[in-house]
Design a protein around this nucleic acid. Structure first.
Lengths: 165, 165
DNA sequence: ATGATTCAGCACGATAAGAGTGCTAATAGG
DNA sequence: CCTATTAGCACTCTTATCGTGCTGAATCAT
């Protein structure tokens, strides 16, 4: 399934919300928002959302504060948090196929006869490069101008356009 | 799960095998290989492999021939079969998140409040552009030179290198 | 102190998707 | 005919995700 999980989706919504709150508060860069508050703003299972935020905290993408006025806050500027990091934190960085496995681990059963190992690794790296080069800032609601340092789109902006459905 | 299914993996292996057989037979471009033969060459569940080949035939990516000497053969030159087509045939073209759904269908529950709809569509298009621009030929066992018209890599060839693990 | 609110951690049941198999037709060659 | 192959369908088994409940620890307000 070439698709993100619900947990990742919820995590992205939460992170964008944290970014917005951070942008609003010009003075302090530590604005803590509770999981409950986010769950009230979006039609998302609050309990699961809390679980996701915990994972993001473990991955140190967000800071957490306990107590009555506690909550979560971005650990870094939105520009420095990549979509790749977020996805990796919430669902790991799995290989595209059973091939190209870490050899010593549960290596490809097809072993030496597998004809698609190396090429698939190349495609996979391309995919993750795409994710790594997209920042949380890019996910903001405002239509981002394509004219920032976006390597994957620099050579072929059409590749990121709304071409295919 | 940002990962291809086993069915797709088996399909890719089969298609590469069909390509190799096609390359070997210089005279006729209609070399039919049976599902059983492929299943014998690779440690793959033959029954499932057959099911996958049927799907590829329905998608008209391969030709099928019944009877004693029947089997499957590539419907087009390997250069004209894209990885995107193959994946689409075997597992569809799902959206990355529940957002960015075909509006009238089972549209995003987060509706207008969803902050990540449009940006995710952009990322998704980038991903599929990557797949669409990779041909079956590129999946061949021989290390393909990076110097062909590969828009997504033209501007940043490093994006397709063996950088990240 | 005391209570309210929040995050942390674990564990469990429900649901859905994928993996894999079995069987019966229909087709084509020897 | 007999054999080998694809076509189509249905079914079970396994796995991962989804979603929830509960307990404990930290922190702030009173």
């Amino acid at each position: 399934m070439l698709q993100l999980t619900k947990r990742t989706e919820y995590g992205l919504i939460a992170l964008v919300h944290l970014m917005d709150q951070r942008d609003l508060a010009v003075h302090s860069d530590a604005v803590f928002v509770s999981a409950r508050e986010i769950g009230e703003r979006y039609p998302v299972p609050r309990r699961l959302l809390a679980e996701v935020l915990k994972d993001l905290a473990r991955a140190e993408l967000v800071l957490s504060a306990r107590g009555a006025t506690g909550g979560y806050s971005l650990a870094h500027p939105p520009e420095d948090i990549s979509l790749g990091e977020i996805v990796t934190a919430l669902e790991g960085r799995p290989t595209l196929t059973g091939c190209e496995a870490p050899a010593g681990d549960h290596a490809c059963e097809v072993e030496s006869v597998c004809p698609i190992k190396s090429p698939m690794t190349r495609v996979r790296n391309g995919l993750w490069a795409l994710l790594d080069q997209t920042s949380l800032r890019d996910l903001g609601s405002e239509p981002v101008a394509l004219s920032h340092d976006f390597p994957a789109s620099a050579g072929a902006p059409r590749a990121l356009g709304e071409t295919s459905s």
